[in-house]
Amino acid sequence: MSVVRLLDVRGLRAGYDGVPVLHGVDLQVDAGEIVTLLGSNGAGKSTLNNNLSGLFQPSAGQVLFEGEDITGAPSMGIVARGLVQVPEGRRIFPNLTVLENLELGSYRRARGHCSRNLECVTAIFPRLGERLPQAAGTLSGGEQQMLAIGRGLMAEPRLLILDEPSLGLSPLLVEEMFALIRRLHEEGLALLLVEQNVVQSLELAQRGYVLENGRIVLSGTAASLREDPALRRAYLGV
């Protein structure tokens, strides 16, 4: 028996209304690791995330989280175990205040630590701390992304899935975002970083997977992926 993985996805098949999107995905994340999932638009990255988070039911395969089978479990049960997703498009609550958004982050998990975690999150994101009573919908795009991540951190995740955190941010903010991800990792958080931003993601991650048309076509250490001729051709144009 090997060591228990934090996240172990085996042969996952999923789709929408019978149209298959994922054709058997295998992917692992270990404790304390940053793993990046790369792939172009429509490769199935968000489908994979949403099946991991329990928003959709996979048609076949298995998802193990800390050794326990969570395949097809409802999203609230998955959040309760500490598998938390910061979705693409942020999905913050625009009609609620920044404070209420953060408080709802600990709705299902770490509720007792809400005020302590609120201090941590506002220490990481001082901008959010200044804007606690403000309606979240009035924040700028970058601030909304910070809020989405802050909301995810409020649940004290064991594994944080970040779906395209740099999407729609200015180059300066993208730098800031990757610095933040590095910092979270240094504090011991395991991350699954789903990105189109290949260069920066591979600099940050220890390992990576490349998803194409619903299949993992390439995987390995970040260093080996950086040197892979097929990947360089497809994503870096060299």
């Binding site: 988070s53 329990g54 928003l55 409802p74 999203s75 609230m76 998955i78 959040v79 309760a80 938390v84 997703q85 979705p87 942020r90 999905r91 913050i92 609550f93 625009p94 009609n95 609620l96 209420e100 408080e103 709802l104 982050g105 709705y107 299902r108 998990r109 909301r151 649940a155």
Partner: peptide, 23 residues
């Protein structure tokens, strides 16, 4: 109240609500 916050969250952003573990 907590319930009210969850109700308002679901009203505007169902998927986000599911992702913070709201039933």
């Amino acid at each position: 109240t907590d319930l009210g916050r969850a109700i308002r969250a679901v009203a505007k952003e169902r998927q986000g609500a599911r992702l913070v573990g709201i039933d």
